[in-house]
Design a binder for these strands. Structure first.
Lengths: 239, 239
DNA sequence: CTATTCCAAATGATATACGATCTGACGGCG
DNA sequence: CGCCGTCAGATCGTATATCATTTGGAATAG
């Protein structure tokens, strides 16, 4: 009787698209963990649709690498192997670096200020031991820098990479103790380069290294603590 | 009665996958030109399947950016705008550059020799005015360099970029007179860098520049000849 | 007790049928 | 003459039904 439900889905959205968002949301927020079986009929019932649109949604998620789907076997949230994960990270470092460099000439003082404010809040999270907010803010920080990216195509690759990384955020090898503090410092360094209108290549390599160092730290951490229970301190977040 | 048909599709392939390949093949070889309407029922009849798998195939092609699909309107081969095309090229230059640099440490003398042989044949094509073979060999050349790429994820991005480029190979702004000869010279230069075990960054930037120069040449050509009928000489091929 | 075979339930894959929406043409009205 | 409403055809979107495959366990033989 009253207004529409708070989270009422856009009625102009097709059922296939609704299914897509439904599943994707659950993968992103961790309700569907890697290995979780996505049964067509079951999800269809949950959404009160038939299996056809659900199937379409799952196929698209498969194309993004978030889901694996085998003929006559079924679909499950991707259980990304460590090497695959590292490959994704490596690719992401390259793509993000380039996207940052492309965006650099279009970044205003306002963008810098907003990004810096976010980075300050990340420092707060460090003190409060709040890895969840830290990770969210980290994405926000980079999103601000990408707002004016002139090349939507490369931004799309960035987002795909983020999604793929996100599938595994609970997995042991996506955490790197001791990186969070270094991360915020690198953010500040990056902002200084942007403010100083540094050469594009310099910015690109700095942004790339920002993620590469996380990757390296992960590898080193893996080598030392083979399957040791992670963490205790914050820092339990990729950056 | 005799052996299986020459191009008999793998019977273990699902009908959805068959449809996917069917359509994609036609987009890639130009039988379906940009703007060509893909009517579900029609393609379903051609393949003797129902519309459901065809629909699935088209959705996947849409996700790859090869097809556009509008609700209740239909699908058509993507008519990629010039700016989109340039964005794809720009992204591709970055991704290819990185993939080349990653592959460099794993490239053997044999790979170099094979790549060089292909490049020689490209020179022949230059003399024979054979743009079609030239383009095909160009892909082969780079494929050889990517054979040992340790990161399949970034290779996937390369292939997606190539496919997207390929959709438009007949479109006026994908041709750049005067580039073919420079292209084979840059190939040779790249091979020399690889033979000399040049630093990764140097190789990356050289490979990136190889495509970027084509991009720049395209832009310059566009600026001069606004919509003039292209070509006459070979060179009518991206490199 | 173990290995093997076979069957039934679960699940995916696809065909068919129906409903919804868009497009373009036709004809009346201003 | 041009604008607008209506209608028919085309096409997509989805539900339902049916077929095919897999899987796990029960029954049976060794």
């Amino acid at each position: 009787m009253a207004g529409p439900a708070v989270n009422a889905p856009d009625p102009t959205l097709s059922k296939a698209q609704r299914s897509y968002r439904y599943i994707r949301e659950r993968i992103n927020d961790g309700r569907y963990v890697p290995g979780f079986r996505l049964v067509l009929g079951q999800i269809a019932k949950e959404l009160d649709v038939s299996v056809v649109p659900v199937r379409e949604a799952i196929r698209l998620l498969e194309a993004e690498g978030l889901v694996t789907f085998e003929r006559n076997i079924g679909a499950q949230v991707a259980m990304i192997k460590e090497t695959e994960y590292l490959h994704t990270m490596q690719t992401l470092s390259i793509v993000e670096g380039a996207a940052t460099a492309m965006s650099a000439p279009h970044i205003s003082a306002d963008h810098i200020a907003r990004a810096r404010a976010i980075n300050e809040r990340m420092i707060d999270c460090l003190g409060d031991f709040d890895p969840h907010s830290f990770t969210a803010l980290n994405l926000e920080f980079h999103s601000v820098l990408f707002e004016e990216c002139p090349n939507p195509h490369i931004l799309d690759l960035v987002h795909r990479g983020w999604n793929r990384m996100n599938v595994l955020r609970d997995s042991s090898f996506s955490f790197v103790p001791g990186r969070a503090r270094a991360s915020v410092e690198e953010h500040e360094e990056l902002l200084r380069l942007l403010e100083a209108d540094a050469p594009a290549l310099e910015i690109e390599l700095a942004a790339r290294a920002h993620r590469t160092r996380t990757l390296d730290a992960m590898l080193a951490y893996q080598a030392e603590h083979k399957r040791a229970a992670p963490v205790g301190e914050l820092d339990a977040t990729s950056a």
